[in-house]
Design a protein around this nucleic acid. Structure first.
Length: 377
DNA sequence: GAGCATGATTCTAT
DNA sequence: ATAGAATCATGCTC
C-alpha cells in the first residue's frame, strides 16, 4: 500500500481496517457493499456537501429516524459515511449534538463549511457598506436639539417659548398662561419622546444581545466570524434607527404644530391697558433727556405695568424712534406728562416742605416740550 | 374699509 | 448686547 492510500484510509476513518484489508481492493469493495464507510475522501466530502443542502429535519430523519435503534442497520450507518459512534447514540437531540461535536469527521466538516462561508462572505462583501450619516436624521436631530426636546433641558424650553412669553400683548395674564401652557406641552412632548427613545434603545440592546448569543451558540457548529456578528449587529441597529427616525419625525411634527399655534397667538397683539401706557409715558417724558431705562428701572416698570421686561424695551424702542421722527405730533402729549410730573413733584415738595424739580431735568438728549413750571404751555 | 396707532419682529450698526 | 430703523400685523376709530 502506498502512502496516499494509507492516508486516505486513515482520513476516511478506516483506522479499524488492517493494512491487508486496505491493500486488498476486494476487501474494501466487500466492506462498502456491506454498508461500511466508503474509503474515498471525495465521496465523503460529496456526502457532507449533500447534507448541507438538506434541511436539518431531512438530515435528522435520514440519520436518526424515530425508530432508529430498532431499525438501525450497518447499511444506514454506511449511508452516513461515518462510523457507528455518532448515529447509534440515543434519540435525545442534545446527545446527538454532542455526538456530532465529538464525531471524528467534525473538523473536516467544519473546514468545508469554513470554505463555503468564505466564498459566501466574499460574494456579499461590499453589498452592505457603512451608510453615511443620514441627512434626514441629522436634520431631525438638529431641530429637536434647537427646540429643546433632545439634549439638555432648557430653562425656558425654547426660543419659541421665550417669544411666547414676550407676546403677552394687552392681556399679560393671558400671555403668562400661554407661556406656561407652551412650556408644559413642550415638556410633555419631551417626556414622551425620551421615554419612547429609551424603550427603543432597550429593545434594540436586548435584541442585539439575543442575536449575539444565538450566533455565539451557533458558532460551535458552524463558522461565524466576529466580523459577521458585527455586520448582524449593524443590520439590527439600522432597523432600529429607522424606527427611531419615525419617532423623531412625529416629535418634530408635534413641536411644529405646537409652535405654530403659539406663534399665531403672538401675532394677535393686544394694546397695553391705559394705566400701563400712562406709567410708561410718565417715565419716558420725565426722562426725556435720557429715555433709556436701566435694567432695574425696566423691571420695575414691567412690574408696575404687569408686562414683561422685553415688552418694556420694545415700548421704549418704539417710543424713542417715533418721538424723534415726529416731535411735533408728540408735543401735546409731552406737555401733558410734563405738567403731570411737575404737579406730582410739587405735591411731593409740599408734603416734604422742600422744593424739588421734575425727576430729571431735560438737558440735551431728546428735544423737550415747552412748558412752564405752573403747567401752562 | 381706509387710515392711523401700536406692539412685535427683523436687520444693521455700534 | 443694545439701539436705531424699517417693517409687519393687528387693533381701533371714523
Amino acid at each position: 500500500m502506498d502512502d496516499q492510500t494509507r492516508m486516505l484510509a486513515s482520513m476516511a476513518g478506516l483506522g479499524g481496517l488492517s493494512q491487508a484489508d486496505v491493500s486488498d481492493p476486494d476487501s474494501v469493495r466487500k466492506q462498502q457493499s456491506l454498508g461500511q464507510p466508503p474509503q474515498d475522501i471525495g465521496d465523503i466530502l460529496q456526502q457532507i456537501m449533500a447534507i448541507t443542502d438538506e434541511s436539518l429535519d431531512e438530515a435528522q430523519a435520514r440519520c436518526w429516524p424515530e425508530e432508529a435503534p430498532a431499525q438501525w442497520t450497518p447499511q444506514r450507518e454506511g449511508e452516513l459515511g461515518g462510523s457507528t459512534a455518532g448515529c447509534a447514540l440515543p434519540l435525545n437531540f442534545q446527545h446527538r449534538k454532542h455526538a456530532l461535536n465529538c464525531h471524528r469527521m467534525k473538523p473536516a466538516l467544519f473546514s468545508v463549511l469554513c470554505e463555503i462561508k468564505e466564498k459566501t462572505v466574499l460574494s456579499i462583501r461590499g453589498v452592505q457598506e457603512e451608510d453615511p450619516p443620514d441627512p434626514q436624521i441629522m436634520r431631525l436631530d438638529n431641530m429637536l436639539l434647537a427646540e429643546g426636546v433632545s439634549g439638555p433641558e432648557k430653562g425656558g424650553g425654547s426660543a419659541a417659548a421665550a417669544a411666547a412669553a414676550a407676546a403677552a400683548g394687552g392681556s399679560p395674564n393671558d400671555g403668562s398662561i400661554e407661556h406656561s401652557d407652551y412650556r408644559a406641552k413642550l415638556a410633555q412632548i419631551r417626556q414622551i419622546y425620551h421615554s419612547e427613545l429609551e424603550k427603543y434603545e432597550q429593545a434594540c440592546s436586548e435584541f442585539t444581545n439575543h442575536v449575539m448569543n444565538l450566533l455565539r451558540e451557533q458558532s460551535r457548529t458552524r463558522p461565524i466570524s466576529p466580523k459577521e456578528i458585527e455586520r448582524m449587529v449593524a443590520i439590527i441597529h439600522r432597523k432600529f434607527s429607522s424606527i427611531q427616525m419615525q419617532l423623531k419625525q412625529s416629535t418634530c411634527e408635534a413641536v411644529m404644530i405646537l409652535r405654530s399655534r403659539f406663534l399665531d397667538a403672538r401675532r394677535k397683539r393686544r394694546n397695553f391697558n391705559k394705566q400701563a401706557t400712562e406709567v410708561l409715558n410718565e417715565y419716558f417724558y420725565s426722562h426725556l433727556s435720557n429715555p433709556y431705562p436701566s435694567e432695574e428701572a425696566k423691571e420695575e416698570l414691567a412690574k408696575k405695568c404687569a408686562i414683561t421686561v422685553s415688552q418694556v424695551s420694545n415700548w421704549f424702542g418704539n417710543k424713542r424712534i417715533r418721538y424723534k421722527k415726529n416731535i411735533g405730533k408728540f408735543q401735546e402729549e409731552a406737555n401733558l406728562y410734563a405738567v403731570k410730573t411737575a404737579v406730582d413733584a410739587a405735591n411731593v415738595s409740599a408734603q416734604a416742605s422742600q422744593a424739588n424739580s421734575p425727576a430729571t431735568p431735560n438737558s440735551g438728549g431728546y428735544p423737550a416740550p415747552c412748558y412752564t413750571p405752573d403747567g401752562r404751555l
